[in-house]
Design a protein around this nucleic acid. Structure first.
Lengths: 184, 184
DNA sequence: GTTAATCTACCTATTAGTAGATAGAAATTT
DNA sequence: AAATTTCTATCTACTAATAGGTAGATTAAC
């Protein structure tokens, strides 16, 4: 792997486990065996690095989604929840949860990109919910977008809460999301 | 207000707006016009300060709840949501959301107390939901504790998300929580 | 021989924390 | 009641470590 890629990979781990204000260039340099000045060569400021991390994760997520080909909206929703399960299994949180926590210490540019990404996530989930409803798979009282918000917030917060309390709470919530909107 | 109290008050604001790793004794000292060494006099280490903040907020929350006297479980649930609305209106997050975000950088002692507090919050909400169900006010598919988790996670995460996206999303979710379990 | 990538060496500011002085209030002794 | 000691809260002054960042040298590849 190229140095630049290694730096981003390490930064992702630090940001999604400790937050943007609890890691330094020194932490990354120690981890991959280069000097901090070499990291500054690729990412002059910490903001540049956080920006690169955010765009990298967004890009990767887009590609992963393109690869999926769900036969129905029930498995699409399961697939969406699985994305969060995968992150939780690595003892990380999503980039949305990570950067949201530090939002008041980040530059407006980051906030703008994050805002856009969150809206896309809501759109994606809302699309699944809406189509699933029309296919007679789901029932829910809210609008598709608000129902998407309900589910997204369940997943974002339980990933954090279950790191403090019982891990099983994550599975409880993940399961309940599906049960609650399942039409039978 | 006494100096010690002022320090805790300022620390609460910093922790619930910027997080535990994005404020320093200097920040507090500037805010209340004393030297950092005076803060160390009351709270020798930062962990001591965070601990005091956590216990202060838990204590205050307990007292506030004691003062409430809800006639039915529907207004008790509304009261619970109102607590979160109040925090959101101050552009803060709850102490649970704040410390959960920094959990991997905090001492185990803090994590243990936070764990206990979260469990108590779940208990409190579950009690309301369970009683409300028996009183024929609420319907939901999950167990009371899991339903409490669903609602708690909705509120915790939307308080953060709505700081990045549209503020109205907070109200949308708060309203939907009530609609979804309302029996009519 | 220019460019890319890395290094050494440095800088300024901040961080968390310690040590010890001091001023005033409160308690104790004479 | 006066003198003395102790306690409380604050300050000045310091430290070692870290943070984020810059400047310029060196090396290796193209």
């Amino acid at each position: 792997m190229e140095t630049k890629e290694k730096i981003v990979t390490e930064a992702i781990t630090f940001i999604t486990t400790r937050g943007t204000n609890a890691f330094s260039y020194k932490d990354i340099s120690k981890e991959i065996g280069i000097k901090t000045s070499s990291i500054h060569y690729y990412f002059p400021t910490k903001n540049d690095l956080i920006l690169a991390v955010l765009e990298h994760v967004i890009q990767k997520n887009k590609e992963d989604r393109k690869r999926n080909n769900y036969s129905n909206m029930k498995s699409a929703l399961r697939g969406y929840i699985d994305e969060h399960i995968l992150i939780r299994e690595q003892n990380k949180v999503s980039i949305i949860a990570a950067l949201a926590a530090d939002i008041n210490t980040l530059e407006p540019q980051i906030k703008a990109i994050l805002n856009n990404y969150i809206e896309e996530e809501i759109d994606y989930l809302a699309y699944i919910l809406n189509k699933g409803e029309k296919e007679n798979l789901f029932v829910y009282k809210a609008t598709p977008r608000i129902q998407a918000l309900m589910i997204l917030t369940n997943l974002l917060a339980i990933s954090r809460i279950s790191m403090i309390t019982k891990e099983i709470y994550f599975e409880d919530v993940a399961r309940q999301i599906l049960i609650d909107i399942e039409k039978k």
